[in-house]
């Protein structure tokens, strides 16, 4: 019963999404192309030139080129940003703007089904985005190994869910969308910039490095990178730590999302 209800919610989201499918796929594709071209290739020239990088890659980046360094990190970071977008206004829509969630709970579907179905849908969306991203990375020749890059996709999606689930939980408590700009400005944007997407944190002051441990994005990027570069074996304990943090955020967020949405819808 519940599983089929969750599936109904998922279907609903997919149906709604069909309307914006084309534009959305286009920007999911354009976004990595632009970022990899501008930051990876364009800026990469200057980064690699500065480190006198040769055929052996950039010594400052552990022997890969800047483009290669950037790709897996940007994969996880981009999925994270999409996750934040998918879990703010769309949720508000269901609760406030068009109130479709209230229509749903008047049927056999429960608030829990709505929360889980929506999160399942977001997972699917993020997977689409991550796959497109990975394809673009391969087209740029920016991955040392295609197989390893594909193996990093689930990590990127999990990173996204480590954000999506808590943000859905937060959105379920909101009266309107006023707080969302603050979420973007104070959480996702700074993390996008400062979680090791564009540069290693090694050179930064110790407190900043310590703070990075609190950022699920940092864990996601670190794990995605070590998988893409085939480096997990060199420190499997650390990889497990990363994974544990991501699972904690995603799982705890899911639990909260279910609870908050139930409180919100069932009164």
């Amino acid at each position: 019963m519940a599983a089929s209800s969750i599936a109904r919610v998922f279907e609903h989201q997919a149906l709604v999404y069909r309307r914006t499918l084309r534009g959305s796929l286009f920007s999911s594709f354009l976004n990595p192309v632009l970022y990899l071209a501008a930051m990876g290739v364009g800026l990469g020239m200057f980064v690699d030139r500065a480190a006198a990088a040769g055929a052996a890659g950039n010594p400052a980046l552990g022997g890969v080129t800047y483009l290669q360094y950037l790709a897996p990190g940007l994969l996880a970071a981009t999925v994270m940003q999409s996750a934040a977008l998918e879990s703010t206004h769309p949720i508000m829509g269901g609760i406030v703007y068009h109130r479709i969630y209230y229509a749903m709970i008047a049927t056999p579907i429960s608030a829990r089904d709505i929360a889980l179905g929506t999160l399942a849908w977001i997972t699917a969306r993020l997977t689409m985005i991550a796959v497109i991203f990975a394809v673009v990375v391969l087209a740029f020749g920016a991955a040392p190994s295609a197989g390893l890059l594909l193996a990093a996709i689930p990590v990127a999606v999990l990173t996204g869910m480590a954000f999506a689930a808590p943000i859905v939980a937060f959105a379920a408590t909101q009266r309107n969308g006023e707080a969302f700009p603050a979420v973007f400005r104070f959480i996702t944007t700074p993390l996008f910039l400062l979680s090791g997407t564009f540069f290693p944190l090694d050179g930064l002051p110790a407190p900043v490095q310590a703070a990075a441990w609190l950022s699920p994005l940092w864990h996601g990027i670190a794990l995605a990178r070590s998988i893409a570069f085939g480096a997990v074996g060199s420190n499997p304990g650390l990889a497990l730590d990363h994974l544990a943090v991501l699972l904690l955020f995603a799982g705890g967020g899911t639990w909260l999302a279910v609870r908050n949405l139930q409180r919100r819808l069932v009164k």
Partner: peptide
């Protein structure tokens, strides 16, 4: 944030 990240973080590279 952009200034700190890009200017200094990336600047180091």
């Amino acid at each position: 944030f952009l200034l700190v990240g890009m200017g200094f973080g990336l600047g180091g590279l």
